[in-house]
């Protein structure tokens, strides 16, 4: 594979350099703003400018004592965890069903199941607002949890379906031939094997809800303001260093989420392809 060992023409060398330079610049463009915001959260000054006047943890202290950010985190967790649990259960069942057999209107059903991912969120938000308002579901946790579950479910369906495609069905058949009833075979054999896929789906679902702000803007009351909702007003009204502290915490959260996903992906590859290590 490695072309580096071959003698190269000038053209090839210029090509390589162009690709590397432009790719590195683009990767810098992707990472730089995210990295630039982190040091500002440790600034001792009031302004979001470099050079930093000094280092301090005052903005993190602000974050902990304010009456805004901790309740927002709590709301985000309540809504995110509930939406994740419901969407993971419903999404996993649906993926198992879709994987099991062909039935009438399967493509249409698949389309409906994945549509929350495709339809612009503002449209979902408006529809949900009209529909939930007369039912008394606006300004409530229940309404937000239901809407976020709908937005998150497609990610679970896709992730678990992908895992099931690599799933070796002889395992399930072996369990059945040894006399396990279907439900027992599922919990003892199938579920442990596809669990990494289910967990990735759950992480996707949680990230979807945890980052969602359009539906929250439309249907949440003052009691259900989530982290992204508070960030939205913070950025819009008066961006101050507390926002950079929240942002830093969220960046660390995404690093953790990403590492978990990567670990799960490796585990899933090992388990479903049946390679014993």
């Amino acid at each position: 594979m490695s072309l580096a060992n071959h003698p190269q023409t000038l053209g090839q060398r210029v090509g390589r350099w162009t690709v590397w330079t432009s790719a590195v610049l683009v990767l810098f463009f992707l990472m730089a703003p995210i990295l630039a915001i982190i040091p500002l959260s440790f600034s001792s000054g009031d302004f979001l400018t470099y050079p930093l006047p000094g280092l301090s943890l005052r903005w993190y202290h602000e974050l902990l004592v304010s009456d805004k950010w901790l309740p927002a985190l709590r709301n985000s967790m309540i809504i995110g965890v509930s939406a994740t649990v419901i969407s993971t259960v419903l999404g996993t069942l649906a993926a198992l069903g879709l994987n099991r057999a062909r039935f009438a209107m399967k493509p249409l059903i698949m389309g409906v199941l994945l549509s929350p991912m495709i339809v612009p969120v503002i449209i979902t938000a408006v529809g949900v607002y009209f529909f939930f308002a007369p039912l008394g579901l606006t300004d409530s946790y229940t309404g937000l949890i239901l809407a976020h579950t709908a937005l998150a479910a497609p990610f679970v369906v896709i992730t678990v379906s992908a895992t099931l495609q690599h799933f070796d069905n002889t395992m399930a058949r072996a369990a059945a031939s040894l006399g396990a009833p279907p439900v027992l075979a599922f919990f003892k054999v199938v579920l442990p094997l596809i669990l990494p896929g289910v967990a990735s789906g759950a992480l996707f679902a949680f990230a979807t809800s945890f980052d969602e702000v359009v539906v929250v803007l439309m249907i949440a009351g003052p009691g259900q303001r989530t982290l992204p909702r508070e960030m939205f007003s913070g950025i819009r009204e008066n961006i101050n260093p507390t926002i950079t502290a929240v942002a830093t915490v969220l960046i660390i959260t995404s690093v953790i989420l990403l590492s978990c996903l990567e670990a799960l992906r490796r585990r899933s590859e090992r388990m479903t392809t049946g390679k014993v290590t």
Partner: peptide, 21 residues
């Protein structure tokens, strides 16, 4: 069985997504 497994999510999305839109 397959349809029965898909049905809960399908019904859920019909009520919280398709009907509202």
């Amino acid at each position: 069985t397959a349809f029965g497994l898909v049905a809960p999510l399908l019904v859920f999305l019909l009520l919280t997504f398709v009907v509202p839109i």
